[in-house]
């Protein structure tokens, strides 16, 4: 039964649906709009800039121009330089160089997740999407998978640029350390997890909003406003309730957890270890991913 001669449909003999079609369609949706390339270029430019900025920063950390420091800070700067030159310090520098660009990369992975979900409603394409695939859980999981893939690509581009610069930088600074040592490698892999979890977080977070603009703005606030604001709030709480764990508690905020997770050594005073940040981020990703599925299944489109 065909309306016109259709060579295309004549070849279509599949009787059952396949969830992978949806993943493939979601990838196509991202590829056929421009946003994705703007984001990728943004990641590349920001990474290039931060890897240079971090390089300059570590140069002065290792070789502080002591004569330019106020007298009372010279001892501290000199001690910092000695600390940075130890084996652990050199590994931390390598880790920092190799995760340059994470701030914007994670942000854009998250925003891509927000946009992938909310643009279905903003541009009213959700009806077509859910008519083609009425199994809404499958659609959201496909969006999660797609955004995670995009997050991995962002991470790969960022890490690749870091990898192009870092070996030359380390040798130019006469820093003897191995890039495949556990400390930098662990940071690079945790960095990958951060991109992935921010992507998942973004899709679920987007499902909480009717308006795309509101979702993007709130997402930006959670990501960027997060660290300073949350640390400030918990410092105030500490003034009233003097227990050391209060100072480590900001890790419950996603932006802080993400920072703790990728920073070898304490990310701030009394910061919990990296694995705590990892668990918190994992929790957020799981909760928000589930929220995305549940919210979308119940929604009237």
């Amino acid at each position: 039964m065909t309306t016109v001669e259709s060579p295309a449909l004549a070849r279509d003999r599949r009787t059952r649906g396949n969830p992978l079609w949806q993943v493939s369609a979601e990838i196509m949706k991202i590829r056929t709009t421009r946003l994705w390339w703007l984001f990728l270029v943004g990641v590349a430019l920001f990474t290039a800039w931060t890897v240079l900025r971090n390089g300059v920063g570590h140069h002065y950390e290792l070789n502080p121009p002591l004569d330019q420091y106020p007298v009372n800070e010279r001892a501290q700067a000199a001690a910092g330089a000695v600390q940075a030159a130890t084996e652990a310090g050199r590994a931390a520098i390598a880790a920092d160089m190799m995760t340059s660009g994470q701030l914007l990369g994670g942000l854009l992975a998250m925003l891509l997740g927000v946009v992938v979900l909310t643009s279905e409603y903003a541009y009213r394409t959700a009806p077509a999407t859910f008519l083609t695939n009425p199994r809404r859980g499958t659609v959201i999981v496909a969006k999660l998978v797609t955004t995670v893939i995009a997050g991995i690509v962002f991470w790969a581009v960022s890490t690749l640029l870091d990898l192009l610069v870092t070996p030359f930088y380390l040798s130019s600074q006469h820093i003897q350390t191995s890039l495949v040592g556990w400390v930098p490698l662990r940071s690079v892999l945790l960095n990958l997890l951060a991109y992935v979890m921010w992507a998942v977080f973004g899709v679920g977070f987007g499902s909480l909003f009717r308006s795309q603009v509101a979702a993007v703005v709130t997402g930006l606030a959670v990501y960027l406003g997060g660290v300073a604001a949350v640390l400030g709030i918990f410092n105030l709480v500490y003034l009233a309730y003097r227990h050391a764990w209060v100072l480590g508690a900001p890790v419950i905020a996603p932006a802080v957890a993400s920072l703790v997770m990728i920073t070898p050594g304490p990310a701030f005073d009394h910061a919990p270890p990296q694995w705590v940040g990892l668990l918190v981020m994992l929790g957020y990703a799981l909760v928000f991913g589930a929220v995305g599925v549940v919210r979308t299944r119940r929604r009237d489109i």
């Binding site: 295309a8 279509d12 079609w21 369609a25 083609t132």
Partner: peptide, 12 residues
């Protein structure tokens, strides 16, 4: 995109 999601050849 709709063809992809529905498993229909893209020429359609």
């Amino acid at each position: 995109v709709i063809c992809r999601a529905g498993g229909v050849p893209l020429e359609r």
